[in-house]
Design a protein around this nucleic acid. Structure first.
Lengths: 203, 203
DNA sequence: GTTTAACTGAACGCTCTCGTTCAGTTAGTC
DNA sequence: GACTAACTGAACGAGAGCGTTCAGTTAAAC
């Protein structure tokens, strides 16, 4: 199997390159990032990057994959929490917003959206790793609450979307277009989301 | 007042430049657009562009302003429609989504978001001309419905955000990341939005 | 030790676009 | 017609970054 002769490729270097590339790409953007800069950051020769990833797009794709991989770890909603349904919704909403409104996340989404134009697969990969995964996780939570009679939800996937959307409100727009959303604004939206959601779905 | 000697600057050319620049900038992006291309499109010399707008950013800013100006015309919600409140909400939701989910709008938002990083004022200008304006308009509609007793809304601005967010659901993400959202998906979300909204706010 | 292939550093060709310069033309005002 | 300033076309300088090449070094396998 592994009877490849010659010096083996250095996986630690490969990882260092992807790491450095992620930082640059998602901080500065695809066009504004130079391969030479990434090489310098990773402590590696430029040629090594081309050997590993072929070209700039190849490197970007690898960086996106790694970032999506990271993201997959984040979504898990405890099905068996205690506290009443109202409090649980509240805390789930807070967690979601805290996660989504981080500046790095906003920035990352901007980059992905921009590159989706030229490479639609990138957008899809992000959707699967992020939003859709979150929606699935939350909708199973809702199904569970439904079967316990705490909620009365007929379409858990739709309801999951609705709750997430209510929590964001128009705050995601403010964030994307450069404004900070204060803690109190976030709380107001989340509280309002819980109110509306329960008014519609209380069991 | 207007006693400027010499050949007057050609306002028709100026408009043609902005027009051409808008197309290129919002189709291809800021970096990918070359001044020479814009000059060719507008049937104008490159020097003329520099005389009018100083540099590339100046031209971009002018294009954004023009586009925001256009957008301001679009938001008006008839306060005195007939039909019950349910039908009116439905049709407002449909109008909103049809407007927001146009590919040109998605594209425009991507560009603005990208440039907001380097020029925060651009993001603010967009928010004021677009989302905030829409929110205002819809919230006065809600206030009106409230005073008629059709709805019971205590915080019209929050409720306006909620309705808009419910209509979008996660469809705006799908759009931004390269997927088409089908007519039926949109309708399902809008219908769901009306249901939830009325459950919470029916007078 | 020999072989094979990954890595390095530096240099190079290439292309692209911004922004400028300049001589010459054109469109209005006095 | 004289004046002034906007416009044109073409050329240029300058910088940046991609991707390649090459001679030389290093790390593993046999």
């Amino acid at each position: 199997m592994k009877k490849k002769p010659g010096r083996p490729s250095d996986q630690a270097k490969r990882q260092a390159i992807i790491e450095a590339a992620s930082l640059r790409f998602f901080d500065d953007g695809f066009a504004a990032t130079s391969i030479e800069q990434v090489a310098a950051d990773a402590g590696v020769s430029k040629v090594t990057i081309y050997n590993h990833f072929g070209d700039k797009r190849g490197l970007f794709t690898a960086a996106v994959e790694r970032e999506c991989e990271k993201m997959r770890g984040y979504f898990s909603i405890d099905q068996e929490q205690d506290g009443n349904i109202r409090d649980r919704l509240q805390s789930i909403g807070e967690g979601m917003i805290a996660f989504l409104f981080r500046p790095e996340m906003i920035q990352f989404e901007r980059r992905i959206a921009a590159e989706t134009e030229v490479e639609p697969a990138i957008g899809q990969a992000f959707l699967k790793a992020g939003p859709w995964r979150m929606k699935e996780a939350f909708s199973t939570f809702l199904s569970h609450a439904n079967s316990l009679g705490e909620l009365h939800v007929e379409d858990p996937l739709l309801a999951a979307e609705q709750f997430a959307a209510l929590c964001k409100g128009m705050g995601d727009l403010d964030q994307r277009f450069g404004l900070d959303v204060s803690k109190t604004d976030r709380s107001r939206r989340i509280a309002g989301a819980v109110d509306v959601f329960l008014a519609a779905y209380k069991g």
